[in-house]
Design a protein around this nucleic acid. Structure first.
Length: 872
RNA sequence: GCGGGCGUGGCGGAAUGGUAGACGCAAGGGACUUAAAAUCCCUGGACUUUUGUCGUGCGGGUUCGAGUCCCGCCGCCCGUACCA
């Protein structure tokens, strides 16, 4: 008998329409069922969706559909992270307005996402570039400003001196501007900041209250915030060397216990003392100018060769007046961290040691490692950073580092220097305030005005929104808002005089720091409807890329805290559960000239080796490494092509199978074909079995014969396993279980005769359950299977199958028997057998007696239900 | 540089400290077919003569037992505050 193949091209649109007409996924806040908020990180509308999106949204959709089947009231919205640089780049390159480019991309991508059959509530959709959205973001900005959580300060940017514009870090390539090629310099601008450091302590400690976050993400955030307890320690400058007007320099140190090992002080190139010293020291001034070319990124600064220049200034050791150490300006000291000045203890810090060796500074060990001889111990090229006993350190000798820390702190807190304590304890954070100013057009305008008489004045709330002007040009580099003829002109809300608008727009991370709250009441006049926000939040399951582990997630956590202070919601944390998915990667291909897309490559085998040829030109192709899909390497597979030829369910099934979702998945054509074969196999299983089954409403009772019982045990076990797997987001394992079940059902159905009422009833039960457990992953096919079974209604609204727990337990278990840790046989015992029974049975086994040769075992390890190990 | 992660057959991967390789892909063999596709069945870590021995990036360690835990390396990936 031949079965007609399942045709996703006709089936998928049909079911999508059925869901839409039933408004199945439009969520009501007050609907029945416990709330469950599933959210995937919303996409940047770059043009077309890519496989990473397919994976991200397929993962979230499984959770959403599963929870819905479990009876939850599920919120599963979608929107667009729509501001950002690519729209401006497109405007410059293709003369298309950023808004037009963005909204056209959104239209394309919405259509693509809809073809995936996602259970999204599209009625809540918005884009962050909608005036409606950024209007409310401007309100939030004013609220933060009023609470003192927004302020202005000077900070450095990458300046392209040819294009006369600020560059993003990714636009700086090897220290040069990406368009102009000019050497980039760092330049100070007054910019807007959010006071995230106000919450540093809570952002760090609250991580311990997020058990449903991956440990690695919590660790990364904790290290990023970087809490450290230390001393603010003032060093007097030796009078004969100090520049006029500066008496001392304050360092932050976490190791005051190593103070007697100090051999220099290093200050940041932009430290005031450095500037002062450079006034009379051209070599130093040149060095400081040089460091401005290193770039502003931490990676650039810290991978650069560590260099310093002596200032000629000397500082007096806080514990010994007769001891002076030189003050250097060093390129690895950051003004943003601590005080911008450190003391170097080369023996116990690797970077300080490298610096000391380079400039011939003394290396004096003061922490003696355990079991080392104080006379013989010395530090050559590896600093000793672990615990030990303090020595070479006067009154600290013999103490542990912790005790020495306390002793130094106590003494110097009590010592006066220039009328103030010489030291004070200080908790320091590596976390810096969040700079949100961008000198760009395509972002949310910062709603403040600059008035000559009143200074910086917030715009009145009722004057919002400050809308981006549409008549702009991208003919010249730089910010079009700056050179707009009229947009800047405004009236000061305080004095009524002339004022000019702020032309900085907000970092796009601001947009994505509260969108999850806006989804709970997307059309509210205020930024949130606190009732809706409090009802839905926190997001129960948030899913997105690991690349957002720190910044986006930390900013969102800050925003929730700031919004709570302003009364917009009452919430500790935005995301209760977090899952970070891996990337979709693909082989790369190139011919002599360029990267070649996978669709243009044909493979063959020559002498057992995989060989590739370019289809369009017949040129030989070199098969490159497996890399993240990217436009530049052209190793992209367009989801549209896959959906058009195999259907959305195949694409979904493929990205969910094989690779665990937190790891990278390698896209391969063969894998997709395998997934599609399984779609057809399921379809065949149902269509072929359907005529033998009792009618849908017949209430036939499954039999208790071997065949019926086997079918029932298999399916109930699978449902239990798949439920667990989905709860843990282990979709690859859920899929392996479904494969196993289908393998078994195919075999069992082959032995089933139409007249066997018990078995056919078991088969109907099995198929009805199977259709429902594949539904979250392949929702369209599940509807078709549901229809084949003649079940009423839509599979998408069918409840998750109930399992009979009595079918999950076995009365016999087979234990592997090891001798000296190596498996040598099996033993089948009753499931409830005690340790003693098992021991006895094991010792009676032939191969065990042989191994023992009459001796008693040295040891007999019995782990009931698991394993037995006989040690001889 | 720093912080975090990952590393298991030809490939993707499975394995509460307890039988390493479930499940899938690819491959090989067979059945069906005039033939092919599709489908179904069987075989696949390495070495070895049955018997075994060796195998989870490399080197050590803890344990009755290590892919899993600890220490030291190597390689790759993510982040590094203006890419999103």
């Amino acid at each position: 008998m031949t079965t007609e193949r399942y045709n996703p091209r006709t089936a998928e649109p049909k079911w999508q329409k059925a869901w839409a007409e039933a408004k199945l996924f439009e969520t009501q806040t007050d609907a029945a069922g416990e709330k469950y908020y599933v959210l995937e990180m919303f996409p940047y509308p770059s043009g077309r969706i890519h496989m990473g999106h397919v994976r991200n949204y397929a993962l979230g959709d499984v959770v959403a559909r599963y929870k819905r089947a479990k009876g939850f009231n599920v919120l599963h919205p979608m929107g667009w992270d729509a501001f950002g640089m690519p729209a401006e780049n497109a405007a410059m390159q293709n003369k298309v307005h950023p808004a037009k480019w963005t909204y056209e991309n959104i239209d394309t991508m919405r259509k693509q996402l809809k073809s995936m059959g996602l259970s999204l509530d599209w009625s809540r959709e918005f884009a962050t570039c909608d005036v409606d959205y950024y209007h409310r973001q401007q309100m939030l900005f004013l609220d933060l400003l009023a609470k003192g959580l927004a302020y202005r300060k000077k900070s450095k940017v990458n300046w392209d001196p040819v294009d006369m514009t600020v560059l993003a870090n990714e636009q700086v390539i090897d220290g040069k501007g990406w368009r102009s090629g000019a050497e980039v310099e760092s330049r100070e601008l007054t910019q807007w900041f959010f006071k995230i450091t106000d919450f540093a302590e809570d952002l760090s400690t609250a991580l311990d209250r997020l058990p449903e976050w991956p440990e690695k993400v919590r660790l990364m955030q904790k290290n990023w915030i970087g809490k450290s307890e230390g001393l603010m320690l003032r060093w007097a400058l030796a009078k004969d060397t100090a520049p006029a007007g500066i008496d001392d320099v304050t360092v932050f140190t976490t190791r005051p216990d190593t103070l007697y090992g100090a051999s220099f002080i290093a200050v940041a190139p932009d430290h005031p003392l450095a500037a002062k010293a450079a006034e009379s020291n051209p070599a130093l001034a040149a060095f400081i100018a040089e460091t401005r070319k290193t770039g502003t990124t931490a990676a650039a600064i810290e991978t650069a060769e560590k260099k310093g220049v002596a200032t000629g200034i000397e500082a007096v050791h806080p514990l010994d007046e007769s001891w002076r150490v030189p003050v250097y300006v060093a390129n690895f000291v950051l003004m943003e961290y601590g005080t911008g000045a450190v003391f170097g203890c080369p023996a116990h810090d690797q970077r300080d040691l490298d610096f000391a060796r380079k400039y011939g500074l003394p290396v004096r060990p003061v922490v003696l490692p355990p079991h080392e001889d104080p006379v013989a111990f010395s530090v050559a090229d590896k600093a000793y950073v672990d615990d030990g006993v303090i020595y070479n350190s006067a009154f600290l000798d013999g103490k542990t580092p912790d005790e020495a820390f306390e002793a130094v702190a106590e003494r110097l807190e009590a010592t006066q220097l220039f009328g103030a304590p010489q030291a004070s304890r200080k908790v320091n954070y590596r976390l810096r305030d969040w700079g949100i100013s961008r000198q760009r057009y395509w972002g949310c305008p910062i709603p403040v005005l600059h008035c000559e008489s009143c200074g910086v004045v917030p715009e009145k709330r009722e004057n919002l929104p400050i809308v981006l002007p549409e008549d702009i040009d991208f003919d010249k580099p730089g910010n079009p808002l700056d050179r707009h003829p009229t947009w800047r002109k405004a009236t000061c809300p305080q004095c009524g005089g002339d004022a000019s608008r702020e032309t900085d727009t907000m970092d796009t991370f601001v947009d994505s720091s509260w969108y999850f709250a806006r989804f709970t009441a997307p059309r509210a006049d205020e930024p949130t409807d606190p009732q809706a926000a409090n009802a839905w939040l926190p997001v129960d399951q948030y899913i997105g890329g690991i690349e957002h582990a720190i910044l986006h997630l930390l900013y969102s956590r800050f925003f929730v805290r700031a919004m709570r202070e302003c009364g917009h919601l009452d919430l500790d944390e935005p995301f209760k559960g977090l899952f970070t998915q891996g990337m979709v990667v693909h082989e790369t291909y190139r011919d002599r000239r360029e990267w070649v897309p996978p669709v243009d490559v044909r493979f063959s085998e020559t002498e057992g080796k995989r060989v590739a040829t370019r289809i369009s030109t017949n040129a030989p192709i070199e098969i490159g490494g497996i890399e993240k899909m990217s436009k530049s390497k052209k190793n992209v597979v367009d989801p549209d092509d896959i959906i058009a030829s195999y259907g959305a369910d195949t694409a979904r099934w493929f990205v969910l199978s094989d690779s665990p979702p937190d790891r990278d998945v390698i896209w391969s054509e063969a894998g997709v074909e395998g997934a599609h074969r399984f779609v057809q196999r399921l379809w065949r299983l149902f269509v072929d079995a359907a005529p033998k089954l009792p009618a849908a409403g017949a209430r036939a009772t499954p039999g208790s014969d071997d065949l019926s019982l086997n079918i029932r045990k298999a399916v109930h076990r699978t449902v239990a396993g798949v439920s667990d797997d989905i709860e843990r987001l282990a979709f690859n394992k859920a899929i392996a279980r479904v494969h196993e079940l289908v393998n078994q059902l195919s075999a069992s159905f082959g032995r089933m005769e139409a007249g066997n009422g018990g078995a056919t009833a078991a088969a109907r039960e099995a198929l009805s359950m199977l259709a429902r457990i594949v539904a979250p992953m392949m929702p369209h096919l599940a509807e078709a299977l549901w229809e084949v079974l003649g079940e009423p209604g839509l599979a998408a609204s069918a409840p998750w199958p109930q399992i009979d727990r009595s079918l999950l337990v076995d009365d016999q278990v087979t234990l592997p028997i090891q001798i000296n840790g190596k498996k040598r046989g099996d033993l089948t015992v009753p499931a409830d057998a005690g340790k003693a029974d098992i021991e006895q049975a094991v010792l009676a086994l032939d191969f065990v007696r042989e191994a023992l040769a009459g001796q008693a075992p040295k040891r007999l390890v019995v782990v009931p239900g698991r394993i037995v190990n006989v040690v001889v």
